[in-house]
Amino acid sequence: MKGVEVYVEGITKKYGSTTALDGVTLRIPPSEITTLLGPSGCGKTTLLKIIAGLEPPTKGRVYFDGRDVTNLAPEKRNIGFVFQDLALFPHLNVFENVAFGLRVRRVPEAEVKKRVYWALDLVGLDPSEFARRRIHELSGGQQQRVAIARALVIEPAVLLLDEPFAHLDYKIKQRLLLQLKRIQRETGATVVYVTHDQNEAMAVSHKIAVMNNGKILQVGSPEEVYEKPNSSFVASFFGEANVLPGEGGFIVIRPERVLINPDRADTVYDAYIEDVVFQGPLLHIEARVNGKIIKIIKPRNGMVVKPGDKVRIGWLQKDVRVVPE
């Protein structure tokens, strides 16, 4: 299966006086995972619904592989949608939930069974154990898998996921994220993944679009966005960052790039260690420079600093990023 390329062009969406999306243009490459990352209320769900055809845009167009689908009904777009609240059908069992999209397409019964079992296997649910279960007899993580299987079984050209793992425990979430990546590789679908969690975004994405206030601020691979944030908002929202006033706006320096007692650095300050927190193999250090806190992250081995220590901190110019706002 080959996913489609999704292109949204100049999308604006207004709800009364609220502007949920403000002139959003984004190219979503085929057969990759693109993440919409941004704080709650920034318009992620709205953009997903417009791609799915569940809401009409106030302005702008949506294209699938160059074809204008702006006015196409959702059922004709060949999409899969995993809703934030899952929206599983309580009156149907697991098998019939997953089979729903095949039945409305009038797929022959033998083929339905084959593909439902394939989809359940794909998401890691043993069909012989789960096919006949009722939805309310499943755990949260199992329901999440059913929702993904239901969206996948129709082999959608685009799979849209709206914060599908938001309410799950950390461990289950990690496992499902890995599974999602594997499923995407195996099916070749275009995946649009929505989250407000930067760790999920880093774990899953080929490409990240950082959103705020109905606008897309930056698009790029996780490495690009992390290394070259184009604004202090992106720098702080995606990864930890020290944002300091500087020439022509602000300078951004990542905590792991701050050096302690460096032999060689382009910028050096005298600092006091305020706080040291153990986080597994890493130390999260807070240092005070001229009344301002600088966040530092260092591997634990060999690092001996403690609160109250007087140190010099600094960084190399190549590790500094200047942003206009």
Binding site: P74, E75, F83, D85, F89, F100, G101, V104, R150
Partner: peptide, 19 residues
């Protein structure tokens, strides 16, 4: 809400309402 989910799975308005 669930009718909307049905439509993303390929059901038209009428089928979503009925099924």
């Amino acid at each position: 809400r669930l009718a909307v989910a049905a439509r993303t799975l390929g059901a038209d308005r009428f089928t979503a309402f009925l099924k």
